[in-house]
């Protein structure tokens, strides 16, 4: 196994072009487990840890350009305002030690349906900036996940950054696990209200072969909110709307039974999370704070 250590981004792209099967490694929190157990033995490892710009982020007018290797700890500490959903998701990733090394780039590269960042990225709306010696392109997050642990990267491409839309409204992220911290998701749900475009976006984790959006639920809710003039009035949403939203979210799941939980439970839990996160975000939108007191109707 060769260990490639490019000193800069261009060099990294050249190395990836030369060795398309090389596996990039940054924090190593996922890959090293597979290597230690001899489950995977790539011919080349491509170490990205010397490329400083991957650990930087820029807050722009409408988007945050988040370097692929920015550790989760940085996100949850410093990007709570701009990326509240992703910050909440970052907080649920593994343990503090892993959060100090793990990054969104790694989650995207592995593209596991259980990756904690995915539901938040899907809900916020994002584009993945990928590059190769051939050039740079941006892949909309909706097109990024192509199968179980597969993504839309070409063999010679590396993930450079992810462009996440800055929050224009409340966002939430919830994850169900059998332990109260440091646990792989049994299922997860991300929700973002986008009052600027009067849309709603969602993301579901660990309840389908890939991270998915609950599109029918989003359309239903956006329709209901528009129809009743809720964005302007800020009135409480009827329980029937919350319930329907939750049902449609559960309907977007395509879960399996495994050691972590049953398909039936996952579908049920996604519905509960959808209903609760809707309550919290809507209360926040109405300016009442997500303290649970004003959410009885949805929660």
């Amino acid at each position: 196994m060769d260990f490639l250590r490019p000193a800069g981004w261009e060099e990294a792209l050249a190395a990836k072009a030369e060795h398309p099967a090389a596996v990039p490694i940054a924090g190593g929190t996922d890959l090293m487990v597979e290597i230690n157990f001899d489950h995977r033995r790539p011919d080349h490892l491509l170490d990205l840890s010397r490329i400083d710009e991957l650990e930087e982020w820029e807050v722009g007018e409408t988007h945050v350009r988040l370097g692929a290797s920015v550790p989760y700890t940085r996100i949850l500490e410093q990007l709570r305002t701009e990326l509240p959903g992703l910050a909440l998701a970052s907080h649920t990733v593994a343990s503090p030690q892993i959060r100090n090394r793990g990054s969104v780039g790694g989650n995207l590269g592995t593209a596991s349906p259980a990756g904690d960042a995915h539901p938040a990225l899907l809900a916020a709306g994002a584009e993945v900036e990928v590059a190769s010696v051939r050039g740079t392109r941006r892949i909309p997050i909706d097109d990024f996940y192509t199968g179980v642990k597969r993504n839309a990267l070409a063999p010679d491409e590396l993930i450079r950054a992810v462009h996440v839309k800055k929050a224009a409204g409340p966002q939430q992220f919830s994850k169900v696990g059998t332990r109260n911290a440091m646990v792989i998701a049994v299922c997860a749900f991300g929700l973002a209200l986008h009052p600027d475009s009067r849309t709603v976006r969602t993301g579901i984790g660990s309840a389908a072969p890939t991270p998915v959006r609950a599109r029918e639920a989003e359309e239903f809710l956006a329709g209901a909110l528009a129809e009743g003039g809720f964005w302007d009035s800020g009135r409480t949403i009827a329980p029937s709307v919350c319930t329907r939203f939750a049902e449609l979210a559960a309907g977007a799941c395509d879960p399996i039974d495994d050691v972590r939980g049953t398909a039936k439970y996952r579908r049920h839990a996604v519905a509960v999370l959808a209903r609760r996160t809707l309550g919290w975000t809507w209360d926040a939108y109405r300016g009442r704070g997500a303290n649970g007191k004003g959410t009885e109707r949805c929660a």
Partner: peptide, 17 residues
């Protein structure tokens, strides 16, 4: 705190149920 409710850090309830 993050540890004080069922679900802990995973933010699954704010007191509901």
């Amino acid at each position: 705190g993050a540890f004080s409710l069922p679900g802990g850090l995973n933010n699954t309830t704010h007191g509901e149920s």
